[in-house]
Simulated scan of single mutants.
Amino acid sequence: MAQKKSGGSSRNGRDSNSKYLGFKKYFGSFIKPGNIILKQKGNIFYSGLNTSLGKDYTIYSLIFGYIFLKKKNKKKIIYVL
């Protein structure tokens, strides 16, 4: 029997599904309670006033309001007012 596979087969035909990370609502946007602002891997952006952090590091709103960003000690904090 032949030791090599035929020339037409491919070994690297796999690809992972996209994770749809990133901002779902942008700064200055009006949002409702429960709306997802950002999906991320790890804590890159931190949740601030009137926002909460999900177990998969998703930041979402707790109130009606507008989205703002603030930098404090090299941390990027997202909050809603």
Score class of each variant (00 low, 15 high):
M1H: 12
M1Q: 11
A2M: 09
Q3A: 07
Q3K: 12
Q3G: 02
K5V: 07
K5S: 13
K5Q: 13
S6I: 15
G7W: 13
G7K: 15
G7M: 12
G8Y: 11
S9G: 06
S9I: 15
R11E: 04
R11C: 03
N12Q: 07
G13Q: 05
D15E: 14
D15Y: 13
D15I: 13
S16G: 11
S16V: 10
S16Q: 12
S18A: 04
K19V: 09
Y20T: 07
L21W: 11
G22Y: 13
K25S: 00
F27L: 12
F27P: 01
S29R: 00
S29L: 02
I31R: 05
P33F: 00
P33L: 03
G34H: 00
G34P: 02
I36Q: 02
I37F: 01
I37H: 00
K39V: 00
K39R: 15
Q40Y: 04
K41G: 09
K41Y: 14
F45Y: 15
Y46S: 06
Y46T: 02
G48M: 12
L49H: 02
L53H: 01
L53Y: 01
G54I: 01
G54Y: 04
K55S: 03
D56L: 10
I59A: 09
Y60M: 01
S61E: 01
S61R: 04
L62D: 09
L62F: 00
F64W: 10
G65K: 07
I67C: 03
F68A: 11
L69F: 15
K70F: 11
K71R: 12
K72I: 06
N73P: 01
K74G: 10
K75M: 07
K75T: 00
K76H: 06
Y79G: 10
Y79R: 08
V80E: 09
L81F: 05
L81A: 06
L81N: 11
